[in-house]
């Protein structure tokens, strides 16, 4: 049984996700605002969070950024009416595991949960692991992890950035190619742009 939090300002959506996941024997707590959810997350983080993007006051993306900054490792699934590619990319860039558009089927919710929680292969978690491997000089482990991320998150710029980070010390041209691929997927990917500038300027530090 997993502990799941749901943040959505529409009570019908909160109740629907709760009903679907409780049917699967999980413990579900719901919140109408990001602020309410964040207060409880600080005391007791969930095993997985479903959140809307369009929330009153603090929006879903701001919440996702806070979760990323505070290094929480639970997976986040966005459930939103928004279908704009930029918003979806931005959310993925900040480490969400999946994006479901409304209206959703019970199968979409359950499969997303299984993908994100059961595998525990969240992008955010793995990104931190890769960076720590690279910093420790454990390039083989980092390389294996990045290969898995390419397979699991083919549309995300993050695996390209991590591969560039890995290749930075031994093949700068290859690193540049992957950074350009990351920027093609997300032109606002700050970390990728900074690393590209660093390579172009010949700054080794």
């Amino acid at each position: 049984m997993a502990k799941i939090y749901v943040i959505d300002d529409e009570s019908s959506i909160r109740r629907l996700i709760k009903m679907i996941m409780e049917e699967q024997k999980h413990e579900v707590t719901t919140f109408a605002t990001a602020e309410e959810g964040l207060k409880v997350i600080e005391k007791e983080p969930p095993d997985l969070l479903f959140t809307d993007l369009g929330l009153p006051e603090m929006n879903g993306l701001e919440l996702i950024k806070i979760v990323e900054e505070r290094l929480y490792s639970f997976p986040i699934v966005v459930v939103s009416e928004i279908t704009i590619a930029e918003a979806i990319i931005e959310a993925f860039k900040h480490g969400i595991c999946d994006f479901i558009t409304k209206p959703f089927t019970p199968t979409e919710i359950i499969e997303s949960f299984e993908k994100c929680y059961m595998s525990t292969d969240t992008l955010l978690k793995k990104k931190k692991e890769v960076i720590s491997f690279v910093e420790a000089g454990k390039n083989l482990q980092a390389s294996k992890l990045v290969s898995r991320l390419f397979a699991n998150f083919p549309n995300s710029p993050v695996p390209h950035y991590l591969f560039a980070l890995l290749a930075f010390s031994w093949n700068k041209e290859l690193a540049k190619r992957h950074l350009k691929a990351a920027l093609a997927l997300d032109p606002d990917y700050k970390e990728a742009r900074e690393l590209l500038i660093k390579i172009d300027s010949g700054d080794e530090n």
Binding site: S12, I13, R15, L16, F104
Partner: peptide, 27 residues
């Protein structure tokens, strides 16, 4: 929706949705 199904209701008139009960869990 009370039976735990995910239900989507489509209508041309927004006011038609006022017939849905408060307990309606769907779209």
């Amino acid at each position: 929706s009370s039976k735990g199904n995910s239900v989507v209701v489509v209508d041309r008139r927004e006011e038609a949705f006022s017939s849905l009960s408060f307990e309606f869990t769907g779209f």
